[in-house]
Computed example of a mutant assay.
Amino acid sequence: MSNQTYILAQVSGSAIHWRLKRNCSVTPTQLAWFYLSLCTVSLGIGAFFWSLGATLVLAFAGIEVIVVGLAFLVYARHAADGELISLNGSNLVVELETAGRLERAEFERQWVRVEPKSGDQSLIELSGQGRSIEVGRFVRPEQRQGLAREIRKALRSV
C-alpha cells in the first residue's frame, strides 16, 4: 500500500489531461480478500484458545479484526481519490474526487492564474473569474513547481 503519487499527462487532439492520483498497489478487492483471510486466521486462533478455556483470546481477536477492518475501510474509501485537470479548447476543467465526493471547477483559459498557494512546494492554486481551486495533493512537493510550469505552458499555447 504505497502513498507515492504519479502524474499522467495525456494529449488527445487539442485536449490535454493531467490525472493526479495515488499509486495504490492494493486494489479494494485484493484488500477485501486479504482481510477475510486475516479474519479467518485470527478468529480461528481465538476459537482454538477459547476451546482450551482461554475465553478472552477470542474477545481480543474479535476486537483486533474490527479495528483492522475499520482501518482498511478508511484506506479503501480513499484509494480512488484523485485530481483530473483537463484543458480542452478555451476551457480548463478541474475535478477533485475525495472519498467519493466530486468537486468540479471550470475556468476560461485566458483568465486562469497558476500560482503556488504559499510557497514553492505548496499546493498549486488555479484561480480566475472569482473562483479558485487547489491542486497537486497527489504530487510530491518537489514536483509541484514543474506541474505548475506545465499547466502554464499549456494555457499559453494556442
Rank of each mutant, 00 (worst) to 15 (best):
W50P: 00
V11T: 12
L92G: 04
G44T: 02
T29K: 02
Q129K: 06
W18L: 02
S118M: 10
E142A: 06
A71H: 05
I133E: 04
V68H: 06
Q145P: 01
V41P: 04
Q110S: 06
D81S: 00
S51A: 09
S127H: 07
A148P: 01
T5G: 15
G53F: 06
S122W: 09
I151L: 02
V74E: 07
Q145H: 12
F72D: 03
A80Q: 04
V41F: 05
R131E: 10
T55P: 05
E103T: 13
L84G: 06
N3K: 03
S90E: 13
W18I: 04
N91D: 15
A76M: 10
A99M: 00
L70S: 05
V57H: 02
Y75I: 14
L147T: 02
S118H: 09
G130P: 04
G100A: 09
E134L: 15
N23Y: 15
K117F: 14
R101C: 08
L8G: 07
A99L: 00
H17D: 11
E95G: 02
R152E: 03
G82P: 06
F48S: 01
T40Y: 08
A47M: 10
E142H: 05
R22P: 15
I133M: 08
A59R: 08
V41H: 01
M1I: 13
L31N: 15
K21V: 12
Q4S: 14
Q121C: 14
L87R: 01
R104T: 05
R19F: 05
F107G: 05
G62A: 11
S122D: 13
S25F: 15
S2T: 10
E103K: 09
G69V: 03
G46L: 02
N88K: 04
I133T: 11
R113P: 14
V41A: 09
I85P: 01
V94Y: 01
L43T: 07
N3E: 08
L31E: 13
G130T: 04
P28F: 06
V112R: 09
L36I: 11
C24P: 13
I63D: 04
S51V: 03
E95Q: 07
T55F: 06
V158N: 15
E64Q: 11
G44E: 03
R140I: 06
N3W: 03
H78C: 00
S25E: 15
G119H: 10
A32L: 14
I66G: 13
T98L: 02
A99H: 00
E108T: 14
Q121F: 14
E142Q: 05
I16T: 13
G13T: 08
S2L: 09
Q143R: 05
R140H: 06
N3D: 10
H17N: 10
W18Y: 03
Q143K: 05
Y35A: 11
Q10S: 15
I45T: 07
N88M: 04
G46D: 02
Q4G: 12
Q143E: 09
V112S: 12
S37C: 11
L73S: 11
I133S: 03
Y6L: 13
I45R: 01
M1K: 07
